[in-house]
Measured scan of single mutants.
Amino acid sequence: GHYRIRINGREFEIRGISEEEIRHLEEALRNGADEKILKEIVDRLRG
Rank of each mutant, 00 (worst) to 15 (best):
G1Y: 05
E26L: 10
G1H: 07
I37N: 06
Y3H: 14
R44N: 08
E11C: 08
I22T: 03
G47E: 13
A33F: 10
E35P: 11
R46N: 15
K36D: 11
N31Y: 09
L38S: 01
E35Y: 07
H2T: 05
E21D: 14
E11Y: 08
R44G: 08
E19T: 11
G1S: 03
A33P: 06
E27L: 10
R46D: 10
N8S: 04
R6K: 12
A28R: 06
G9V: 00
G47S: 12
I5W: 01
E19P: 12
Y3T: 14
I17E: 01
I22K: 06
R46I: 15
E13K: 02
S18T: 12
Y3A: 14
N8C: 10
F12A: 00
K39S: 11
I22D: 00
L25M: 04
I7Q: 00
R15V: 13
A33L: 14
R10E: 15
E21T: 07
I41A: 04
E19M: 12
I7S: 00
I17R: 02
R23Y: 12
E27P: 01
E20S: 11
G32F: 06
I5F: 03
G1P: 15
R23A: 14
E20R: 06
A28S: 08
N8L: 03
R46E: 10
G9W: 01
K36V: 12
H24S: 11
R4K: 13
R6C: 15
R10N: 11
V42T: 05
D34V: 15
N31E: 09
K39V: 14
A28L: 15
I37S: 07
R15C: 14
E26V: 08
R4T: 12
E13G: 01
L45W: 08
G16Y: 09
K39I: 15
D43P: 04
G9P: 00
H24C: 13
D43K: 08
D43N: 07
N31C: 13
R10M: 15
N8Y: 03
E20A: 11
I14Y: 01
G16K: 02
E26A: 05
R15M: 09
R6S: 09
K36H: 13
H24P: 03
I14G: 00
E40A: 12
E21S: 08
I22N: 01
G16A: 06
I22S: 02
E26R: 04
G1V: 03
D43R: 10
E11R: 01
F12P: 00
R4H: 15
L45Y: 07
R46C: 11
D43M: 04
I41M: 13
E20C: 05
L38R: 01
I5T: 02
G47T: 11
E27H: 10
R30N: 09
I14K: 00
R44Q: 11
G1T: 03
E26T: 06
E13T: 04
G47C: 14
I7F: 05
E20N: 09
S18H: 04
E11M: 07
G32I: 10
Y3V: 15
E13D: 04
L45E: 03
H2G: 14
N31S: 13
G16D: 09
V42G: 04
I14L: 13
I5S: 00
R15L: 07
K39G: 09
A28N: 05
I7M: 02
N8Q: 04
I17F: 03
E21K: 03
A33W: 13
E11L: 07
G16F: 11
E21M: 10
G32W: 06
L45K: 03
N8A: 07
A33R: 07
G9N: 04
E19W: 10
I17T: 02
S18W: 02
S18M: 04
G16S: 05
H24Q: 14
F12W: 09
L29H: 03
I37G: 05
L38K: 02
R23F: 11
H2K: 04
H2E: 07
G47H: 12
I7E: 00
N31V: 10
G32M: 07
I17M: 06
I22M: 06
K36N: 12
E40T: 11
I14V: 05
R4C: 14
F12Q: 01
R44K: 09
E13R: 01
F12E: 02
R4P: 06
I17C: 08
R15Q: 12
E19H: 07
R30G: 08
E19Y: 10
L45V: 09
D34N: 12
K36A: 11
G32V: 06
G9F: 01
R30V: 07
A28E: 06
A33S: 08
I22F: 14
I7P: 00
R30Y: 08
G47V: 13
I37D: 07
R44I: 10
G16W: 08
E21C: 13
I17Q: 02
I5A: 01
G16N: 12
V42Y: 08
V42N: 03
V42I: 14
E27W: 04
R30Q: 11
E21L: 05
R46K: 13
R30T: 09
E35L: 11
R15T: 12
Y3W: 10
L45D: 03
